[in-house]
Design a binder for these strands. Structure first.
Lengths: 226, 226
DNA sequence: CACCTCAGGACACGGCGATGACACCCGGGC
DNA sequence: GCCCGGGTGTCATCGCCGTGTCCTGAGGTG
């Protein structure tokens, strides 16, 4: 089951939240301030419930910090704020918070939101380097490799592959691929996608990974190691 | 740029929203009630701003409907509700709404939320999986599997199976199936359904799931694990 | 037993996707 | 400026898979 880290300076609030979440089967960690929260990060919480109004605006700081660090960026954050602090709420979303709850909130609402955010974020998992079926793409060095062999690839093929690998196990139509990889403003023939798929496959043949790029007849293409 | 569909029965509200969104570069569609919204779906809005309090609770209905239809399920919905209708807010989230805004709201907040939801939904990976009797169909990856074995299936068989699995435990006549799976404009022989049922069964035999597709003599076919 | 419905095999056509060829564009080197 | 080469988009062609129809036989039903 998922672990939730509550960061709030009021013990009463923490208690209420802890009770509700534990009843719903979550594991709960508590911190009363930002520093304590940071110390608890090694416990690998799946989600943070973060009170906006921590002393010294440290809630905002913490959120910003977590979202800037690649290692913690993927931890979703739900902000808790008092009703009416609208400006803060907006900043919270801008900072990268994934959702927020206004006090006072009902237990049911909170659980519903925690679940919703977890469901969303689970699939996301962004990282610079992605590995699927032994094939590795690294968006920092802009390089594709398998084992210790580098694969030479043209720009468009690279973008296509990168899109596929960040959206694996999904079937895409040609027009979706054009929108996503070429940009939805340009107009090119749908069949062009076929050609680039073929070129990409050819490039992947060098290491025997062409089977990862699959044709879904009547629909489009899919990237998957299954 | 993204397209937003506003569904609200109050023209003033729509105007305000439209103005703000267009200023932020969105394309805006307007509907004053659920039916009009449905008619605008072919315009492919990227997100819906849906007033909760449409006459006759049709806002809830619309949301539920959209989230149940595989074709529209992925369109994110932001609910607009009057402050304090908390029960409704929860129901809204349960219905599948992705977020909500309480009236009155500031333009900035609205834009921030629309952007946040769009950002999320883009990366999102709702595995729209349906499982019946150990057989799994996933309309996102467009794949059928049982256990860890993938089942190879032709386009028409796939659509047929998908329809059956989303409408399990009901018997359908051949003409109903033709309407639903082939489309009600095309004309093909009723017996053709038999042939595709047979092909589908053959495909399911690979994992021993052919018994799920049952013949209802004198009526048609039914998909069920009972 | 006669009738009707469904299962299953066979087959021909059409369309979709794979593939190779080619023309154009752009940038770098001379 | 000119040439060269890699990259990209388009087109025509080919082959195969998917699809719809027909026919026959099996099995259930009255």
């Amino acid at each position: 089951m998922a672990t939730v880290l509550i960061v709030d300076d009021e013990p009463d609030i923490r208690d209420v939240i802890r009770f509700t979440l534990e009843e719903s089967g979550f594991r709960v960690l508590e911190a009363s301030h930002a520093d304590e929260a940071r110390r608890l990060l090694p416990e690998q919480p799946d989600i943070l419930l973060l009170d906006w109004m921590l002393p010294g605006r440290s809630g905002l700081e913490l959120a910003r910090q977590l979202k800037q660090n690649p290692k913690t960026r993927s931890i979703p954050i739900i902000m808790i704020s008092a009703r009416g602090e609208e400006d803060d709420r907006i900043k919270g979303l801008d900072t990268g918070a994934d959702d927020y709850i206004t006090k006072p909130f009902s237990p049911r609402e909170m659980v519903a939101r925690v679940n919703a955010v977890l469901r969303r974020s689970r699939a996301e998992e962004v990282s610079a380097q992605i590995e699927i079926g032994g094939l590795i793409i690294d968006n920092v060095s802009h390089r594709v490799s398998a084992g210790d062999r580098a694969i030479d690839i043209a720009p468009t093929e690279y973008r296509l592959l990168h899109f596929f690998m960040t959206h694996a196990d999904r079937a895409f139509s040609r027009s979706q691929l054009l929108d996503q990889v070429w940009g939805n403003h340009v107009y090119v023939e749908e069949r062009t996608v076929d050609v680039h798929v073929r070129r990409l496959r050819k490039a992947l043949e060098a290491t025997g990974h062409e089977h990862l790029l699959q044709t879904v007849r009547g629909v489009g293409y899919r990237f998957s190691d299954k």
